Simulated assay, not measured.
Amino acid sequence: MKHLFLFIHFITIIGFSQTTESRIKNFNLEKDLGIQGYDPVAYFTTNKAVKGKPEFQHNHNGIIYYFSSNNNKALFIKSPSKYEPQYGGWCAYAIGKTSEKVKINPTTFKIINNKLYLFYNAYLTNTLKLWNKNESILKANADINWNHLIKE
């Protein structure tokens, strides 16, 4: 019985680490940092992209987030799925259009149905503007494409 317990415990640890590892693999990170150091809660509370501070950081399943205040950090800890960006923080437009993981500009974002979507915006290409032209189709495609990407 003791060996069975240890075996189940070991398998649980392996399963968790693989889940965490695959989750991290699918996130748009720079040195384990999500959203390039921007505060995920501030998008919702201020409707602005606000740089977080290292002194208000939290590691959620291997992804480090910075927050602009202890209050925002506490809100995130209470409900991380409410604040984490969709599609692993990759460009929502690119996921919907071509199923590619494209870097984002954290200041280019949109809140849709209380979810955070981030977009590429550089070199005269603002993908949020392209997304807005065909949002319903792109979002439906992005949802399907993302489910395929995370299974790879």
Rank of each mutant, 00 (worst) to 15 (best):
G37C: 04
K97V: 03
K139V: 00
V41W: 00
K97A: 04
K82C: 01
Y93A: 00
Q36G: 04
N114V: 10
N105Y: 05
S17M: 08
L130S: 04
K73M: 13
S17W: 06
A122E: 11
N72V: 10
L6R: 09
Y120N: 03
I112Y: 10
K31F: 11
G52H: 14
F5H: 12
N105G: 09
K25Y: 11
N105Q: 12
A142P: 01
T107F: 01
V102G: 00
K110G: 00
T45K: 13
K133N: 09
Q36R: 09
G34H: 08
N121Q: 15
Y38R: 05
R23Y: 14
K53T: 07
L128N: 06
L29P: 12
I95C: 03
L138V: 08
G37I: 01
D39S: 10
N61G: 06
F10A: 14
Y65F: 15
G88F: 04
W131E: 05
K129G: 02
F76V: 02
S69H: 12
S69A: 09
G89N: 02
L138Y: 03
E135P: 08
I137H: 07
C91F: 02
S79D: 15
K51N: 15
P54D: 12
N105I: 00
Y43K: 02
N47P: 05
F44Y: 13
A122L: 11
N121I: 05
N26L: 11
Y43H: 07
N147R: 04
K73H: 06
L128Y: 09
I24W: 06
K53F: 12
E21C: 05
N71I: 14
I111A: 10
V41D: 00
V50D: 02
P85K: 03
P106F: 09
M1K: 09
G34Y: 01
K103Y: 00
C91T: 03
N72C: 13
I14M: 09
G52S: 14
F7A: 14
N121F: 12
I35K: 02
K82A: 03
